[in-house]
Design a protein around this nucleic acid. Structure first.
Lengths: 198, 198, 198, 198
DNA sequence: TGTTAACCGAGACGGTACGTCCTGTCTTTAA
DNA sequence: TTAAAGACAGGACGTACCGTCTCGGTTAACA
């Protein structure tokens, strides 16, 4: 955080970073404490010590607040590392994905947003285009590297392969609610490698 | 005439089947027309020509109305048939599941309920226990029959297998929003058979 | 009227008399304590222990609440008595009017409504037609009786006469804020009698 | 001060006359177009092309803006002329007063301020002391001159007389909303002269 | 000839109240 | 006993203004 970033409260440069952070935190906290229905604009405003109008000025709705909170949190997670070994990379990455979705605070926010997206096609599109597509690109990377290395066939349909790898994880998280242990994700990788590596 | 079936409006003989049907239909219609947020108790009552109290008397909440509407619709669908051939059964069944989830009215209700379940653990549990578990039992049948016939190894973890088969379908439906064509479901079956039928 | 008026709280017969009274009293109290600007729908609702919607259901605006409160209070006051003597009647009546306008709670409500009527022509019309015209008819009575008795000329313009009698009182109340002592009202009567009873 | 009042925009010597005039005009226009409730600081600022802060810097509230606008407009009107004849002076003056109150733009501002004064005792006092007392002094002049000339008795209570002369006019303007024709004001003068001139 | 101080526009801020909508509870009359 | 009707207390919605504040720009007097 170099130097100044003067803490201004309302001026012509624009918005108050202080207020913005307070809103995002309040939304996160309320989601964790009371669930999605417990997140209200009035509640966020009250907890953040902020005027309702300040929220409406910058976010069209409460899901946009959560979306921004989610984006901030998700950035650092879930970038698969380049180990030079497909199996290891996939096992590590899927395990991290499972942990993110089931065990982290931003994972809870994601589940809420994914749920709301079922009611709101616009949100669904936004969630996919602005937030999940980047993640999907990162997911794709290990497979593409493996294709380049010759570990996987050149004609592999990467998107289908990806759906088979991560689909069961999301399914457990969003539908069955079962835990997603390491054995489960490892087994997904094993099935994948068994089919595609000779 | 045997028994009642008289179209009564408020009487001493028990609940009005007329009102019940009107409520379920109104809820279905509203969901289709305005989405989940457009389904309100007041809206259902007004459209069904029914008093709010009548709804509250028989259903604890609007999701219960939808749940009941969903149950009625889902019964007929999705019972895998016994063809004596695992591959055929699975291909047919997964294709029907995909069509149900993406293309039918009750599929839309399911998506809404699954979405709401992300916000409401009690609903999630109820959805799983009362509605999806039966379906999952039906899903399991072809695999169990195949194990009995010796087409699949006796030590197969049927639940894990099932998650790998249907998970990618739900993932596309609930998360990516991609279409789920026959090629996709057939490929899931192919991958499964390739692994487990040497 | 007669008999019961059972104290019901919300039913198909109609409104809760309990709530109605609570609203009128709360509005009166708030006006007395905090002035017109301190009378808000939210404030009335909170003090009356009533939902905002209940107020909006029955009154279009806060001035309508005050108007109704005013009407209830004003009925009993200000009916000039028939003494058979014009001078006595007028002196008594004008003194009572002055006291009503300057010294009573409903007088304060009237002043607030008259003030608001300067901003709102519709309110002005309503105030005149529904509330003051009746009072004006009562004011007119002594003069008409005197005309019948021959105490006043038959061609007297009663409206002009009335304006000359009560106008200075309202002027002091609404514009100069001066007190309106008995001597002032008596003098108005004296001037009037001096002119019209040679 | 002397002379120029150069049209400066922002400098250390004082306020912008340009901004001041724009604010006063905007307030006047808004009052005429939308009524008192339609006059808001934000609205004045927007219409005048002025910052809210500029208004708050120079006027404590919107009524102060209107008060100043009113003062500017009222000065030229309503100074009774010295004709040497009481009846003529009074008739002319009351007719002008009636016209001012009912027919002019500043009259509309006056009515709004008088209305607001019913809700706000401080405003009422200010209106009386700073604005109406001067007018009242001017109103008094013809009577005092007549007393000096011997046209009126020396012991006349001028304030009471004045209230009887102008009170009915204000009453019609503020309460009954009736028109105030020349016959009405002439009749007031006639009644007054009939009583006080032998 | 810069420096500086007063005023300007712009507009974000924490708030209050608005009027609307929906919730879940209640009480009544009719069948 | 159930139904339709609908009033009730409550609470969140999104909007409009309030009065305060901080900012960058302009301009004249003074250094």
């Amino acid at each position: 955080m170099g130097g100044s970033t003067a803490p201004h409260r309302g001026n012509r440069h624009g918005r108050s970073e202080e207020a913005r952070q307070a809103v995002l935190e309040a939304a996160d906290d309320l989601l964790a404490e009371r669930g999605f229905a417990g997140v209200t604009i009035e509640g966020i405003a009250a907890r953040a010590g902020v005027a309702k109008q300040t929220i409406y000025r910058w976010w069209p709705s409460k899901v946009d607040v959560l979306l921004e909170a989610f984006t901030e949190d998700m950035a650092e997670h879930l970038t698969p590392e380049d180990h030079g070994d497909l199996g290891t990379e996939l096992r590590t990455h899927l395990a991290r994905l499972a942990e993110f979705l089931t065990g982290s605070d931003p994972g809870a926010v994601f589940r809420a947003l994914a749920g709301q997206a079922q009611h709101d096609p616009q949100l669904a599109a936004r969630l996919r285009d602005d937030h999940l597509s980047g993640q999907r690109d990162r997911d794709r990377a290990p497979l593409l590297r493996a294709v380049e290395r010759g570990e996987l066939p050149a004609d592999l349909d990467v998107d289908v392969a990806l759906d088979q790898l991560v689909g069961p994880i999301y399914y457990r998280v969003l539908v069955t609610g079962s835990p997603v242990p390491r054995t489960f994700t490892d087994d997904l990788v094993a099935a994948f490698l068994h089919r595609h590596q000779h």
